[in-house]
Simulated scan of single mutants.
Amino acid sequence: MPSYHPARSRRATERKGDVRERAILDTCEALLAHKGYDAMTVGGIAQGAGITRGALYFYFGSKQEAVTALVARTVEHLWERSRTTAQTDEPRQAIAAAMQRTVELWNEHGLVMRTAIDLSLTVPEIGELWNHTADLFIAAITAVLERAGVQAGTAPDQASSMARALCWMIERTFYHASQKSRDELQKASATCEHIWLISAGLIN
């Protein structure tokens, strides 16, 4: 099997267009923090990325398209970091690890994630991305619950339905906590972890 050198590979394969697209998305994330979605403009994104307005349109046709791509990049990070949750054998460890990764991601990208939630009902592409991500997490939570002994199935007291409720509870709890402080996020995580452990029958 040939050896793999990450740094060399990136230098060899990352094209100028990739660098520009990343700069555009990084600028979108920064502008969300400083201006908010409604005040963002295509001109502002282009200026922040160091390109002309015309050059930006080569990559994205509107600020909505650019923000949709930013959401896509963020949820990819979200899923990559949390992929192992469904593969961890011990349910308590899986739950603790999942909640810690969730805190980290909301600390790093909370603004993008709140924007995704806010726009998910009015921008179909973002809604589809966010719902797909939720489905992946629901499947992971379901697997943890089943390993903890919760019966498989879709009845109200069975793993699939409980996982769906836990997923949306965690999303909404973190949405509100992330607007306050990192301490509030940590408290929210502890509460959600406690409820998940009770749901799994791991504590009384």
Rank of each mutant, 00 (worst) to 15 (best):
L32S: 03
Y37N: 05
E29P: 07
L32E: 07
E14W: 02
F58A: 13
T41V: 00
R11V: 00
R15A: 09
E14Y: 01
E65K: 14
Y57M: 00
Y59P: 05
I51V: 01
H34Y: 04
E65T: 13
I45H: 12
G48L: 02
F60M: 01
V42M: 08
R20S: 05
A23G: 10
L25R: 10
C28D: 03
I45M: 04
E14K: 04
A55R: 10
F58P: 00
L32D: 02
A39R: 15
G50F: 04
Y57N: 01
E29S: 14
T52L: 00
G61H: 03
G48N: 12
K63N: 10
F60I: 04
I45Y: 02
G48P: 07
S62V: 01
T13A: 09
A30F: 02
C28M: 05
A55T: 13
R20L: 11
A66Q: 11
G54I: 02
Q64N: 10
R20C: 01
G44I: 08
D38C: 02
G54P: 02
S62N: 12
K35F: 03
A12G: 11
L31C: 06
R15N: 04
E65M: 03
Y37C: 04
C28H: 00
G48M: 00
Y59M: 05
A49W: 08
D38M: 05
T41W: 04
M40K: 01
Y59W: 04
D38I: 08
R10L: 10
R53H: 12
E21H: 14
D26T: 13
E14C: 00
E65V: 11
A33M: 06
F58Q: 15
A33S: 08
A39H: 10
I45V: 15
I24F: 07
T13P: 00
G17P: 07
K63G: 11
L25H: 09
Y57Q: 05
G44P: 12
L56H: 09
I24A: 06
C28I: 03
D38E: 15
K35S: 13
G17Y: 00
T13Q: 07
Y59R: 10
G61R: 12
G44A: 06
I51E: 00
E65Y: 07
A66W: 08
D26W: 00
G43D: 13
R10E: 10
A23F: 01
K35Y: 09
E29D: 14
R11W: 03
I24N: 13
Q64C: 03
T52I: 05
A49P: 14
V42R: 01
G54W: 07
A23L: 05
L31S: 07
G54M: 02
